[in-house]
Computed example of a mutant assay.
Amino acid sequence: MDFLAPFTEVYTLDNFKFLLEGFGVTLKVAAISIFLSFVIGGLIGTLRYARIPVVSPLLAVMVEMIRNLPLLLIIFFAYFALPEIGIEMEITTAAIAALTVFESAMLAEIIRSGLNSIEKGQIEAGRASGLTYIQTLRYIILPQALKRMIPPIVSQFISLLKDTSLAVVIALPDLLHNGQIIYAQKSSYVVPVCIIMALMYFIVNYALSLVARRLELKQT
């Protein structure tokens, strides 16, 4: 009974509401970051694939630099360093900006690799049939590459959702932040709070993985 006592104390309606409020912030930050990083990463990945003189090499350097930096450092930079040069952002905006920058670089590499996986003869065939380079990319290369890109892209989205927890270092009021407030009241609350937070993350991430599987099946 002593073992169950912390669970009965923690699992109250108020605490659940508080955790759900934090999880709402987590999902909001993740959703906005996913959308922005997909758009930006898709553009960068496509430009790198196109091998435009000067532009593509510069983007390659930028992507490699960002991919090899810790996300935590980028979050610190967005919230603490940028104000020093006159760019101030509130906590949620700083978290979204940092996640978007980092995930855009990761997605750009996934998209570039996916496009490169399509045989070069496909481009030549498209151009020979009278299509422009953009039309060939849009109607022939991208649809085929998308099938191969779906699993790693969704995996990256799942990682992004989990990575939002790193923004706790700048006091983003997300799920982890609110969970810490609850279990800080008493050391015995750590296990029950961590269990419920783990379940929340698992449900959403598992749902994303199921969506990815369905998309893969539709593409086959």
Rank of each mutant, 00 (worst) to 15 (best):
D2C: 01
Q180K: 14
C194K: 05
I40T: 02
K17G: 11
R214N: 09
L215M: 14
A5Q: 13
A5C: 01
Q219R: 09
T12C: 10
T220S: 13
Q135R: 14
I96M: 13
E90I: 07
T136H: 01
L146S: 02
V55E: 03
S188P: 03
F18R: 11
I87R: 01
S33Q: 03
A81Q: 13
T164C: 11
A94S: 14
P173I: 06
S56E: 08
A78C: 15
T93S: 14
L59S: 06
G130K: 09
S155I: 04
Y201K: 07
F35P: 00
E216N: 07
L82C: 10
S165C: 08
E84M: 13
I85Q: 07
T46C: 04
M197Y: 00
E21Y: 12
V54Q: 01
E64S: 12
P143M: 10
I96N: 05
P53A: 06
Y11S: 08
E90P: 00
L146A: 12
V191P: 01
R138L: 10
I134K: 09
M106H: 03
K28H: 05
N205K: 09
V169G: 03
T100W: 03
P57S: 11
I75A: 01
E119W: 00
A207Q: 06
L175K: 06
M62V: 15
L208K: 03
H177M: 11
N178I: 03
K162H: 09
A97C: 14
L69N: 03
I182Y: 02
V154C: 00
L166H: 08
I123R: 04
G114M: 05
I158E: 03
Y139M: 13
L160Q: 00
P152G: 11
Y49S: 04
K120E: 10
E109I: 06
L217M: 12
L69P: 00
D14E: 15
A60W: 04
S56R: 01
M65A: 15
V169K: 06
V39S: 01
F7R: 06
L107K: 15
Y49Q: 12
V211C: 13
P57A: 08
L47Q: 05
S129K: 05
